[in-house]
Design a protein around this nucleic acid. Sequence first.
DNA 1: GTAGTCAATGAGTACGTACTCATTATATAA
DNA 2: TTATATAATGAGTACGTACTCATTGACTAC
Lengths: 196, 196
Amino acid sequence: MSAEQGKRQLQKEATRERILRTAAAVYSERGFATPTNVITQEAGISHGSLFVHFSTREDLQISVLERFAQEVCDELHDLSVNNGSVEEMLRAHIGVLKNYELFYRNLVSETALLPRETRTLLVSVQSAMSHHFGTAVEQGQRNGTVKDLPLHMLFNIWIGLLHYYLQNGDLFAPGSSVLEQCGDELANSFSKLISK
Amino acid sequence: MSAEQGKRQLQKEATRERILRTAAAVYSERGFATPTNVITQEAGISHGSLFVHFSTREDLQISVLERFAQEVCDELHDLSVNNGSVEEMLRAHIGVLKNYELFYRNLVSETALLPRETRTLLVSVQSAMSHHFGTAVEQGQRNGTVKDLPLHMLFNIWIGLLHYYLQNGDLFAPGSSVLEQCGDELANSFSKLISK
DNA sequence: GTAGTCAATGAGTACGTACTCATTATATAA
DNA sequence: TTATATAATGAGTACGTACTCATTGACTAC
């Protein structure tokens, strides 16, 4: 039976899970360039064991990122901010990202040294958000409170601002969370900016 | 005499110069993670020779970046866009960066893996630009054509947008120059956005 | 001309780290 | 109970790359 899992298979799945969780934590704190032996050490397993579960380091990175993207996309998708103001919607966006700040920060900072595939994952995260963004902004545009600039440009300005603050978190909020520290200011400034 | 240089000293200076220029070119095309042996090969000198002129790889990177920052700062400083519109000023900014697009693009994309000191250099480049930005925007704010948001926030929104497009150049302008392709749209959209 | 200096060389070293594989221990099947 | 399958191990290998250093040969000072 497929539902019935032997002790061995359960153990294997548990180890794989342990690696994935540990890697996500390590990538959050030390960045994606962290060597594999640090991850296995942190996970309390042998170095070789990692390669029983993931054929290459890149394979592991992709798996971690896929899970992350899935999780964030789900959370973003479930946001109930329909008919809210633009600023509310932006705050909700920031609220979700706060849960992943360190990881997301490293992800956008180090995209250049990550496997190509991960680019697509980042795009899918943005797409998940763009739906709510579009809804709120278009509503504002229809009732004449928001400027008539192309939606994609407004979205890119918002994402660009967000990423800029995340990447330079140590300048804008030294030793602290940028989203916590500057999130409100960002949402507020941006919504003022796009309003007529 | 210090003005009098022996043949030897001239040769040494020429080699150092050759390394710096080659490194800048290589960093532009392959990024800052390119190994030192690629640079020396490209420069047509022995690998060991590099370490006669630069004690470490990091030392070379910093020297290259210092020269770059100096050059860009000078060009930005010399911009004669006083009393021009905000959009003109932004176009001028883009015009300068076009000359360094590949290098600058890699710089903002890979800041995370570069030595700490280089962060300061990037800041100094932004500072050089912020003067013109402030002048143009404040003039607009005084005569009531530009929104009254804090100057630093407007500047960060602009830089964030610019960097976002540079970092994702392959999405916005595949196989081409983003600044060439999207520069006008960026300057135009941003100036529309901040106008009342 | 001779001795000393120094830029340049390139083979060699040190080191980190991704990945392998023979072995071990444990669960499952007979 | 015995035999087989396999998850996990960790010492070992391969490889890339930053950096060293004894040697060379062109320049300089005397």
